[in-house]
Design a protein around this nucleic acid. Structure first.
Lengths: 176, 176, 176, 176
DNA sequence: CATGAATGAGCCTTCATTCAT
DNA sequence: TATGAATGAAGGCTCATTCAT
């Protein structure tokens, strides 16, 4: 049911997605949506949070394997790209939300962004670089999905290169 | 007059910004807005385009000085950060619009994004990296503006480092 | 519910009748009007069509009795006058619409006018006379309703007289 | 200048004709229209009255010749048809106005209608018939202008025939 | 539990009308 | 005098949201 909402949000954006359309697409009636999520915003937040948790989970699982830092980063990047690839709606909405920093939802959603930022900050030991790297990944994924002319591996390599340019690269100097 | 609109769009987004509020903020009456811009979308497009042109102009002027590639890139980055810093609304709206790739306004606004992408692609000779770099810049700027704890120079340096990690860095190997 | 709309349209005309007023008069809310009729024009068309069908039905029933042509015409005329008398709004709007030949609604409404014109043309075997007769009837009814000083029978008699002056009168020479 | 207004009113109707368009078509500025006519309604009334007077004048001149009643009526009918033919806008607006009996303008414009009705009532010595005849003329003219397949003479003949069916025909029994 | 039906509130847009020049 | 520029007021339409069933 969140799936229908996600599709609508991804395609039309928050405002253009009407509850009517979502309810119909989900095959239920509007009052049910309100019953479960309270409001349109509630539905949106629920979807974004679910997507965020899913993405985070995938990345964490990938990274948690016991391995050198560079390999773990590589695995995380692949997980990220895979998620973006396979959950187009979720990724689109997440990406959009990452941007709307000042909106009303910021408070409720800032957690995800911060968790990713923290993760990267820990990794690179440089908050500025961490944000730059996050943006690079998002932008690259977005472009890649729109023009999927290169294999995922290739895309990951670009990000790995950038990661190596960090003041404190993961796994100093390791060629991978 | 566009200024009031920009502020509203930046603060509330396109949909939440009401023409009533914009007109009042601009100190004029609603029909005037329609007289000048035809519609809400017209007003929005006008603002985004003006912002885009201004940003592009600043960056071009900075880069066009006769100098080694790395220095020119550095100047461009500073121009970009300066613009973001000084035209908070314009930058916010541009950044948001950069994202909404599939919206109705895409056609009318894609020019700006493409011009920047082309510029970077030419510079780095690698389309994927160009998009990654653009994202890094946007994200970094966004973070910096929200937490301006470092001097602009420092931020630019982060981006320069990343630029050096390009397959074909501008000004091969030049340490700057 | 169409009744309230009809009253408003008859009294104020299409443009002066506001959906707000109609909704209030009908004792429902505006969105319902839109739910049922889609637009103001939709509501108008619905009303005109219903009125047209009702009038046509009344006249057809009156005329279809097995009887000499003159008597059938007489019955039709009475039906027409009765309808105009009893459905003041419907008749007013129909009459007005009959006139606005070139409007946007023409396409959707021309059917009624043509059906009546055809009916009369068949009856009198003279298109010009048919239109003259239709106009005579409408004008006479309109005047009569505004100044109901004569019994309906009397009014019908005037029209019957005119009908007898047709090149091919119904029921040749029959005095009735 | 009234001409431009008339054209607009005839083509689009009172409400759809915007003062902007009329002013532009007339080659003057809106405030001038207000200077001369006070309001949109004032402009409309002025146009309708002028048209009405012109029609009445034409018909009176035609009828005033010293001649038998039937011939005078015939001349009047021809004058009417000629006016309708040559002043399409004026006639259209007049015809439309004749209909909107209950509008706000009724008071200011009823004079014309009544004068014609009086004229005809005097002629036929039967108010009901007079109104029927007027309607026949209007409707016939309207149809004829939309489908001008017959010479004016022919149309006039139809009306003359109807006139002969009056309780007190003009020029008793005169064949003309 | 689920929904069809209904609505309050608000937004974009337009236009007759008027100042200030 | 004539006008470009400006506006108050209102209208059509939509949508998130809720009863009554």
């Amino acid at each position: 049911m969140l799936e229908a909402a996600g599709q609508a949000f991804a395609t039309h954006g928050f405002h253009e997605a009407s509850m009517d359309a979502i309810a119909e697409a989900a095959g239920i009636s509007k009052p049910m949506l309100y019953n479960y999520f309270g409001s349109k915003q509630g539905l949106y937040v629920a979807y974004v949070e679910r997507s965020g948790r899913a993405l985070l989970k995938d990345m964490r699982e990938a990274e948690s394997r016991n391995a050198p830092a560079a390999q773990r980063l590589h695995a995380g990047i692949l997980a990220f790209l895979t998620y973006a690839e396979e959950h187009s709606s979720g990724w689109t909405v997440l990406h959009r939300e990452t941007l709307a920093q000042g909106g009303k939802l910021a408070a409720e959603l800032s957690e995800l962004r911060e968790r990713i930022a923290d993760m990267l900050t820990t990794l690179f030991d440089d908050e500025a670089f961490a944000h730059a790297f996050a943006g690079a990944g998002e932008s690259l994924a977005s472009w890649w999905l729109a023009h999927p002319r290169q294999p995922k591996e290739q895309i990951a390599k670009v990000l790995m290169h950038i990661a190596q340019s960090a003041p404190t690269p993961p796994d100093g100097g390791a060629r991978h």
